[in-house]
Computed example of a mutant assay.
Amino acid sequence: MSTSIDTTGFQFNHTMLRVKDPKRSVEFYQKNFGMKLYGQFKFAKFKFDNYYLGVESAAPTGADWWERSGILELAHNYGTKNNETYTLNNGNVEPHRGFGHICFSVDNIEAACDQLEANGVEFKKKLSDGRQKYIAFALDPDGYWIELIQNNRRALTKVAGVSNPKTYKFNHTMIRVKDPKLSLEFYRNVLGMKLLYTMEHAGAKFTLYFLGYVSDPNFIENSGEGFSDREAIVELTHNWGTEHDPDFKYHNGNDAPQGYGHIGITVPDVAKAMEQLERAGVPIRKRVTDGNMKFIGFVLDPDNYWVEILPTASMPDLSEFN
């Protein structure tokens, strides 16, 4: 695959999850994770709405949602809220595994977990469960897993029993990958991300690769420096041996049953980026000329996960879709 792509100005903007009840989900992330609702786009013509949330303290002052990283996009398809049989695929149940979780780094993990539990939030894994006593997994209203990790910088000043959600960081989004060689090639050499950190768990036979965009010219790849204080990281999880099974594949969240949708990369020029990606041999899900939304495109990563390409500078007038 050719990699002659100008990734200057590329930014990991958002992660999209489908939700059943948008009011419940928006309030959940606002109350428990310090997120602000930046905006809601109504696409009545297509019978869905999108909600864009981010931790305000982590954003540049005055930035709109498309101008920053660390955004959570919640997509609601009309009619699902009152459908008692409608459920979403959280990506962690066979045979539809693929997407794994989103993660927040918090100022005081013990206090944060206590606070969530007091708020009635359910847990998949508490700090006291299992061998990894330094992480926990909460569940959102649709059953998506939310990992909690300690922000090491915040830990230096934490106060026992105190946690402030407004200091949290929307740290990463985890997806499982079949062949790490192919996936690392795509996210590093095609999309222009840097390898931040690698964690090998030989006993359990899996490896984690964390990637993100870095502007610091002195950054040392794979150092793990400042990892827990970042936003907008992609975690690639590789379970050893999958790359040798020709029939193995992960569920991308957009085939039925649906759940996770995509990550979104903002770029200075969508048409130029899409042209370069297609010329480099990246599979195209949607060209800018396809459909009604001429300002965005979608490409596919090596595991068929969708990656949205959208503009950095501004959003067009979307009133025509209402």
Rank of each mutant, 00 (worst) to 15 (best):
N13Q: 14
G70V: 00
F10T: 03
Q276I: 12
K169D: 09
D179S: 11
F137P: 10
I263E: 02
D114M: 12
E94D: 14
D301A: 06
D21W: 06
E94Q: 14
K36R: 09
E117M: 04
E278I: 05
K20W: 09
K47I: 10
T87P: 04
I109Q: 01
Y305P: 03
A59P: 00
K81T: 15
K286N: 06
N218Q: 12
F41L: 13
M35H: 02
H238S: 14
I5N: 03
E110T: 12
G161V: 05
I265T: 09
A280P: 07
A232Y: 03
F46W: 07
D49P: 02
I233H: 01
T87G: 09
L139I: 05
N82K: 09
V234H: 07
R230P: 00
M199S: 15
V190N: 07
V307W: 08
G224W: 03
K45I: 09
I220K: 15
M1N: 05
P246A: 12
P311N: 07
C103G: 04
K158C: 10
N13P: 02
E200N: 15
L37P: 01
F123M: 13
H201G: 08
Y197V: 10
R131H: 11
P141M: 14
Y209D: 06
K178N: 06
A58L: 06
D6L: 10
P180I: 11
F28A: 04
A313P: 08
N292P: 09
A58Y: 01
S57R: 13
D142S: 02
H201P: 12
A111G: 11
G120Y: 01
I233S: 04
I149G: 01
Q258G: 08
G39F: 04
S25A: 13
L191W: 04
P302M: 01
A280E: 01
G261D: 14
W66V: 04
R153M: 14
